Computed example of a mutant assay.
Amino acid sequence: MPTSYQAPMRKDRKGSQSHSQDTASNLKAKTAVVGDILDSKGSNVIAIQPGETLGRAVEILRDKRIGALVVTDDTGALCGILSERDIVRKLADTPGQTLPQLVEDVMTKEVETCGMNDPLVSVLKRMSDGRFRHMPVMGDSGPIGMVTIGDVITHRLNEVEHEALQLKQLIVG
């Protein structure tokens, strides 16, 4: 090795180092909230009134390819929620006589709801603990959306994938 060669030293790179890859810039500090899901999926509320029949509810569920309906009164206030599970239970109890029955007689009246700023972690825990898959999102004047356990899990998986990519970039440089 020539005598003029000197190995690079840490101070040689000082000032030329990029700071675009660090934990502060790559890891998301914001807690995911319900509004993040509604921002991506939309806040369309598909509702039915309590006096409608289960037959009508089943048609809406089929046509919209959804698993639950928000039940609202004439003013748009939340009265309950009607899920596929509620209908299946009623089918088992009253075979052949279910579809003409009214939504208000089958719906779940004690509804767990959330708001736009509720953390997804707490919503997922409430859904898991309560063993339900749909939760209406409430605004000032009534329901403004619906989140499902699938929405929450998909959002979290996308976050984890993004975090893994960011960490990989941080390590690789």
Score class of each variant (00 low, 15 high):
124 L>C: 05
66 I>A: 06
90 K>N: 13
101 Q>C: 11
148 T>V: 11
85 R>F: 02
49 Q>A: 07
86 D>M: 08
158 N>S: 11
47 A>D: 02
134 H>L: 02
15 G>S: 07
54 L>V: 12
164 A>G: 06
51 G>K: 10
58 V>W: 07
165 L>A: 14
68 A>D: 08
4 S>Y: 14
132 F>N: 04
149 I>P: 00
143 P>Y: 06
136 P>D: 00
171 I>D: 07
95 P>S: 08
5 Y>T: 09
6 Q>H: 13
6 Q>C: 12
26 N>D: 12
133 R>S: 12
6 Q>K: 15
59 E>F: 04
71 V>D: 00
24 A>I: 10
41 K>G: 05
61 L>F: 03
125 K>P: 02
12 D>A: 13
102 L>A: 09
127 M>N: 01
111 V>I: 05
141 S>I: 00
19 H>E: 14
94 T>W: 05
35 G>K: 12
158 N>C: 06
102 L>P: 03
139 G>S: 05
85 R>Q: 05
135 M>C: 13
73 D>M: 03
158 N>Y: 05
37 I>L: 09
109 K>M: 09
86 D>R: 09
115 G>P: 01
19 H>P: 04
102 L>S: 10
111 V>S: 00
83 S>N: 05
72 T>H: 02
73 D>K: 06
162 H>G: 10
77 A>E: 05
138 M>H: 00
113 T>D: 03
58 V>K: 14
17 Q>P: 01
128 S>K: 13
24 A>V: 12
115 G>L: 01
139 G>H: 02
50 P>Y: 06
124 L>W: 00
86 D>L: 09
142 G>P: 00
123 V>S: 03
111 V>F: 01
40 S>P: 02
88 V>G: 03
45 V>R: 01
45 V>Q: 04
35 G>H: 06
97 Q>I: 04
147 V>A: 02
141 S>T: 00
81 I>A: 02
172 V>H: 05
160 V>S: 07
77 A>Q: 12
71 V>A: 01
158 N>I: 04
158 N>W: 06
138 M>E: 00
6 Q>A: 15
134 H>A: 03
14 K>Y: 15
11 K>V: 13
98 T>C: 13
166 Q>N: 12
64 K>W: 05
113 T>E: 03
7 A>D: 12
94 T>G: 01
120 L>S: 07
7 A>T: 12
11 K>A: 15
163 E>S: 14
141 S>D: 00
36 D>C: 08
11 K>H: 11
91 L>R: 14
18 S>H: 10
155 H>R: 10
10 R>N: 12
23 T>I: 14
123 V>D: 01
95 P>A: 09
38 L>W: 10
91 L>P: 07
47 A>N: 04
